[in-house]
Amino acid sequence: MRLFRRVIPHPILTLLLTLTWVLLASSWTLNSLVFGFLLGLVIPFLTQPYWPEQARMKKPHKIAAYILIVLWDIVMANITVARIVLFKPNSRRQPRWVTVPLDLKTPEAITALAGTITMTPGTVSADLSAEGHALLVHCLDAEDPEAVRDEIKQRYERRLMEIFE
């Protein structure tokens, strides 16, 4: 088991890389499967120093629902941002910085949250606090910064909390 962990530090990443390669090659042959698996072995092994801990998930089955919500929000985000860009004069727009205190602890969960924030309505995550307890988020147009913070915590962080911790 220990040897397995040394050789394959992230089994799921290995599977994903293999699948990605087969899809990229777009041919369901043994050839691409074997080469994909080789990449799946080599890449996690080489990048292991930068990702030493095994990611743990409590409820992986909730990922699907999360992805659907985020995809929907991305579509809505595009429309919201397009309307602000086209119709709202700069003088009436209120760009703001917002601090989002984090309850999430694992780096994987925080990364997922930061990525989600960047992809969704009028917000871009810009920085993490020195010890990783808060996210710095820039809002394109926020009349009420506290509402933005609460929505991020309610809509995304709570769900990621269920998945990861």
Binding site: V124, S125, A126, D127, S129, A130, E131, L136
Partner: peptide
Amino acid sequence: TALFIAKVHLHRHETLKSLPPAGEDGIWAT
């Protein structure tokens, strides 16, 4: 990509005082 551009902006144009407080850690990582 967005994060990298934001980081460059933080380095060059923002200071601790121009940003909102960083919660319990007191300073942003950049």
